[in-house]
Design a protein around this nucleic acid. Sequence first.
DNA 1: TGTACATCAGTGAACGCGCGTTCACTGATGTAC
DNA 2: TGTACATCAGTGAACGCGCGTTCACTGATGTAC
Lengths: 214, 214
Amino acid sequence: MMDAMYQLPPRRTYHHGDLRQALLDAGIALARVGGPEAVVLREATRRAGVVPNAAYRHFANRQALLQAVRAAALAALATAMEKERARQRRGKHGVDAARASLRAIGTAYLRFARTEPGLFRTAFGVPGDPETTAHPAMAGKSGLNPFQLLSTALDELVQADLLPKKRRPDAEYVAWSAVHGLAMLVLEGPLRRLPRTQIRGIEQRLLAMVEKGL
Amino acid sequence: MMDAMYQLPPRRTYHHGDLRQALLDAGIALARVGGPEAVVLREATRRAGVVPNAAYRHFANRQALLQAVRAAALAALATAMEKERARQRRGKHGVDAARASLRAIGTAYLRFARTEPGLFRTAFGVPGDPETTAHPAMAGKSGLNPFQLLSTALDELVQADLLPKKRRPDAEYVAWSAVHGLAMLVLEGPLRRLPRTQIRGIEQRLLAMVEKGL
DNA sequence: TGTACATCAGTGAACGCGCGTTCACTGATGTAC
DNA sequence: TGTACATCAGTGAACGCGCGTTCACTGATGTAC
């Protein structure tokens, strides 16, 4: 019933035009609403106004579509990080700017989890390593994916003498863990029901802990 | 084929004896291997040597069985925490003992995620709040569930003057986030492929960060 | 100590579900001559 | 400028899958008298 709402009017041409993109868009829309498990081949083709097996002209199988959606989700997060970084660094220099970068990365990550839970779960709840594969489909304007953006921020911290060089290795894993854990607990864990203001407080406190504790 | 291995020899009695427990045991075994999505009603009844719909005498539906398995997983974690706490506190008093408690809780959590990934995902990847529901089925010997054990450890820290009273509220969420995030990244995230020794190092560092940063 | 009968735990058969995927096909498009 | 034909993108029909769940049933058990 609901699904019928998404059905397109019948095409006038036999060829679709850009079915690959249409399927990807549909997949992203599905992921936004229901996370990775909602990325269903048949539903994507329905929304594109096309017969189910037509998808196989453009994706090897369901998994391939899902990975494309995941890449798009990672790219969206990377872009959000870049924007927040630019915003927080405005007018700052040196030490302050470096600190602002790390904050911005963490803030954008947590906000993305809150505002785009479906895409967030798709980005991180599906196997496949975001750091090793440096595919541009997963990156923002700078060409860096979310993990690489975090690494860059930590490098800045070292250059600004805010993080001792010997503590630099593996620091991204520690920082990422903290932020990722909070995101998960808020998203589908026991923090789901906490009021938004309390969650914001916890977020601030966690970011402070990372800065101080690294 | 594989599944046949788990098929029981035909019962000699018409009544099973303790089918509820048998189904729960089967469910736990399934969760250990494949996480929550592997807890399949039909497979559980197969392993118990019983017809599929027999399960409905003991569980309202699949969800009810899954929740029972989840409670068992939480109880197992709670027990592991209690054991580790007893071990680490041995011979310590006052301030040292309080510090040891928190370490033990975190250590046990991370080890549980590593050694029982299926149960870990079942415990925390399935909706339902472990902190509000204080059901004994989720608890260890002390009657406290994992979240309550963490809270207790933080209370100790306050009593030992290691954590200022005003920073006590919400501290469990911050601590939990850090540890939970690392567990998730190691389990199904990009840290999956890192060598075990490196992971251990990151774990130690994360726990140190929490102690220092709280 | 024996029988009648209510109660409970398991059986047997069947459903609908929507999915991913494969097959042989046809309609449209663009390039070579 | 027009036609022949290879190529590609979509169609139509069908599969097997294993699941959760419902129905009407029968076998075993224990309690009342």
